[in-house]
């Protein structure tokens, strides 16, 4: 790809991509902390996960402001236009991932280490899948790699399937143990949050596809999330 004649524009675009990478790194880290704090019932780590959300929010605002300024100043066309628009969307997805991770961390305190042993490994597995998706989708964005993005997009069904089975397990557990409903509800929300993080990764995948190819990913994503009503 040739560089822009106007070097400042080139730098602004690079700066924007770097901010996304930075946001992505923070979101990944926050998610890792949230999952780990859930696994180990680690309050301190949960608190750190909650606090780190602020930096992501701040970066999202910066990305938005810079992107708007670039549209006004550079009047971007074609690939540049798509990249800038997509960057705004991706930053919003990453911000949401941060929010969801924060929400998981908040629930750690409520759940208070009462996660039934049979469920802990399920949560770990979901966490791993979500982390992998987020990591891979950020790599795909950095490399403008559509094929890699599509793999993330397709793999989300595994996370959905895992969520389904955890959902069932939690429901079963609640049926048998009426006094566990309180923390199990939090547990369910935590699982749902992880599943939603996967959805944001697929949003990013769709945006990468649009950015590179100029066309929307139109096929319906393979789904195994049969419970999902809304």
């Amino acid at each position: 790809m040739q560089k822009h004649i106007v070097t400042a524009f080139e730098e602004e675009l690079q700066n924007l991509s770097q901010k996304i990478s930075k946001m992505g790194g923070l979101a990944e880290n926050q998610l890792t902390m949230a999952i780990k704090s859930l696994e180990n019932n680690d309050y301190e780590l949960a608190k750190r996960a909650i606090l780190s959300d602020k930096s992501i929010d701040k970066l999202e605002l910066e990305v938005e402001e810079e992107a708007i300024l670039m549209i006004a100043k550079r009047q971007p066309m074609a690939l540049d236009l798509r990249r800038i628009i997509v960057t705004i969307r991706i930053s919003s997805d990453l911000e949401r991932i941060g929010d969801l991770a924060k929400n998981i961390a908040k629930r750690v305190i409520k759940i208070n280490g009462r996660t039934p042993k049979s469920l802990v490994s399920g949560f770990s597995a979901m966490g791993e899948l979500a982390k992998t998706s987020v990591k891979n989708i950020l790599d795909a964005f950095a490399a403008s790699d559509v094929d890699k993005a599509i793999i993330v997009w397709q793999n989300d069904k595994d996370l959905d399937a895992l969520y389904n089975s955890i959902f069932k397990e939690i429901t079963e557990h609640m049926k048998k143990n009426g006094d566990h409903i309180d923390y199990c509800t939090h547990l369910h929300f935590a699982a749902k949050n992880i599943e939603r993080i996967g959805d944001h990764a697929t949003n990013i995948a769709e945006n990468i596809h649009y950015m590179v190819r100029g066309e929307m990913l139109s096929d319906d994503r393979p789904k195994s999330d049969l419970i999902k009503i809304s």
Partner: peptide
Amino acid sequence: QTQDYITGRYG
């Protein structure tokens, strides 16, 4: 070539 021109990369 079109892309390079309209995005200001031509030159």
